[in-house]
Amino acid sequence: MEDWTYDELFETIQEVYKEFLSQNRGCRHAIARIVDDFNNLGKIEDIIVDVAIG
Rank of each mutant, 00 (worst) to 15 (best):
I48W: 13
Y6E: 05
K18Y: 00
I31V: 03
I47P: 05
L21M: 15
V16Q: 15
L41H: 03
L9R: 05
V16N: 13
E11G: 01
Y17I: 03
C27D: 14
E15I: 03
A32H: 08
A30L: 08
R33E: 09
Y17C: 04
A32S: 10
F38L: 05
T5Y: 00
C27L: 13
I47T: 13
R28Q: 00
I13G: 03
E11H: 00
L21I: 14
T12L: 04
I13Q: 01
Q14M: 07
I48H: 08
I44S: 15
V51N: 03
A32I: 11
F20N: 11
R33D: 13
R25Y: 00
I47R: 08
H29T: 14
L9E: 04
Y6C: 08
K18T: 03
E11W: 00
R33I: 12
Q23Y: 14
K43H: 15
K43Q: 13
V51R: 13
E8I: 04
R33P: 10
R28T: 02
Q23T: 06
E15S: 09
A32W: 12
Q23P: 09
D46F: 07
I53V: 11
L21S: 11
I34V: 15
F20Q: 11
E45P: 06
I34Q: 01
H29L: 12
I44Y: 11
W4H: 11
N24W: 02
N39V: 13
I48R: 02
I48L: 08
E2R: 15
L21H: 14
Q14K: 04
K18H: 13
Q23K: 15
R28P: 10
I47Y: 07
L9H: 05
R28N: 13
I31Y: 05
D7C: 01
V49C: 01
G42L: 10
V49L: 00
G26V: 07
H29Q: 12
I48E: 07
V35W: 03
D37R: 14
F38G: 08
W4F: 14
V51K: 02
V49F: 08
G42F: 14
N39H: 12
L9Y: 05
F10Y: 09
L9Q: 03
N40T: 12
I13S: 00
N24E: 05
N24V: 02
K18A: 08
D7F: 01
Y17N: 02
D50G: 06
Q14Y: 04
D46E: 03
E45I: 02
T5F: 06
A52K: 05
A52N: 05
T5I: 07
V35S: 00
L41P: 05
Y6F: 02
I31R: 06
W4M: 01
V16S: 14
F10Q: 10
E11K: 11
I34F: 12
T12S: 08
R28I: 14
I34H: 10
V49P: 11
T12H: 00
F20W: 09
K18G: 15
S22A: 07
G54F: 11
N24T: 09
M1G: 15
G42V: 14
Y17G: 01
G42Y: 06
Y6H: 00
D36L: 07
A52Q: 00
V16G: 07
